[in-house]
Structure formats: C-alpha cells, structure tokens
C-alpha cells in the first residue's frame, strides 16, 4: 500500500514538472494558465497523499479557482499572446 502511494506521488510529481515547463514556455498565455492549473491539481493530489487535508482544502479553491481567475482577468485586460 505504501509503495502504491509513493509511486502515485512520484508520477503526479513528474506530471507537475512537465506542466510547469509547458506553462513557462507556452506563448499563448491562456493555455499557460491551464497548464498552471494542471500543475496545481497535481500538487493538490500530492498534498492529499502526504496526509495534509488542511492544505488541500485551501489549495483547491486558491490554486484552481481564484489564481487562474485573476490571471484570466488580467490577460483579458492586456494581451493574450506573448510577444517575440
């Protein structure tokens, strides 16, 4: 059981790394926000597996709800595509 949990944690952690890389290099900022939310979801799963339900409860609304919302509003007010 413990090996299963650790394996799941490792897979989710590597997924979050890939999502972070994609979020940094993505030129379309709206897609980058979605990659960032994907990374946050992976972190929420890790926190849950590490038995920190308090952090999960604050992480889900902030990192999946409020934080992408702020960025989407700011992208709407500025530019969607990164220049260069």
């Amino acid at each position: 059981m413990e090996v299963l949990v650790l394996t799941l944690m490792a897979i989710v952690a590597l997924l979050s790394t890939v999502a972070t890389y994609l979020a940094i290099t993505e030129r379309d900022l709206l897609t980058a926000v979605i990659y960032s939310a994907l990374q946050s979801t992976a972190y929420a799963i890790i926190f849950y597996l590490l038995m920190a339900p308090d952090i999960v409860l604050v992480y889900i609304p902030v990192a999946v709800g409020l934080y992408p919302a702020v960025f989407i509003v700011l992208i709407k007010k500025s530019e969607r595509y990164e220049g260069g």
Partner: peptide, 24 residues
C-alpha cells in the same frame, strides 16, 4: 469547513476562500 475548523481539517481561511470562489 469554517465552523468545523476545530474538529475536522479546515478552518477560517479554507472556508473563506471556498466562499470567495462562488462569489467570484
């Protein structure tokens, strides 16, 4: 979440940010 903060996982910040999501 906020009212059960002293009994189960959760608390004021967790409950408040959950409410803020739906108000947003």
């Amino acid at each position: 979440i906020a009212l059960h903060g002293h009994l189960t996982p959760g608390g004021g910040f967790q409950g408040g940010s959950t409410a803020a999501v739906i108000l947003l």
